[in-house]
Amino acid sequence: MKRIARFLVAVLAVAMLAACSSGGSGSQTPPSSEPPAQTGGETGGEQTPSGEETITLGLAVSTLNNPFFVDLRDGAQAAADAAGVKLVVMDAQDDPAKQISQVEDLITQKVDVLLINPTDSDAVVTAVEAANEAGIPVITVDRGANGGEVLAHVASDNVAGGRMAGELIVELIGGQGQIAELEGIPGASAARDRGEGFHQAVDGVEGIEVVASQPADFDRAKGLTVMENILQAHPDIVAVFAHNDEMALGALEAIEAAGKSDQILVVGFDATADAVKAVEEGRMAATVAQKPQEMGRLGVETALKHLNGESVDEYIPVPLELVTQ
């Protein structure tokens, strides 16, 4: 009997822990004066005093083990705090099964709008359909859903980013010369959109010619070999645009090995740590950075707009930013 008692006490202790960390912020009445949520980023609690209609948004994040999505969460949290609404954040740790369970639990909590940053565009469909059935609007963030009804999709404007990169290259080479393009995995949406924007900027500019557009699959090693081949065929190129930084860094290796770093400038995409360092060292001309905080903020603001009865666009582009020296 003693043992049962001990076990029960322990279980109760766990339950208390739950009660404390939720009760803390949940039992307070609204919100604008309330300090931002605790470290976990969650706000808690179901015990909204009756009569008070607090808006609750649910945010299911793919993983908080990646700084990109932590920034996304922070942006969403800041926007929710500023608007005085509650934001419940769940971390799926990149496990699609866990994400579905978490979305189901958010539906059970009757959140007003669901923001989902899918772990996988196919796997999330079950979760989106469950929300549709419960009549809760869904906004996807960063990655889209391949099924179900989605109110809006908030993601980086890759077309605009490609255009920014193209325009920068035109400016840096003085509107004159041959350019090469390293493309991402054929058919991938990021590759398509970034390429489209790039071509909008450079095609038809007098004196500029894109002499090579070849896929290197977002891969650094492939970027290296493809660039080696391009250098053989077109020794006079003056600039390279790569659809991501990995390929840009691979191309950089090929260019430096060929001793042409003074002649050819490289622009990448994503602003990975390696690429930003290369830009700072002057080896790369620029890279295009996504803004995850903006993504989170726009997600929350779109949700609130919808709840206010305003119409929202199906696709909400998040602006990008050039990183130069």
Partner: peptide, 9 residues
């Protein structure tokens, strides 16, 4: 989850 406790806890 229903209580809004962080998944870390």
């Amino acid at each position: 989850n229903l209580l809004g406790v962080s998944s870390f806890y």
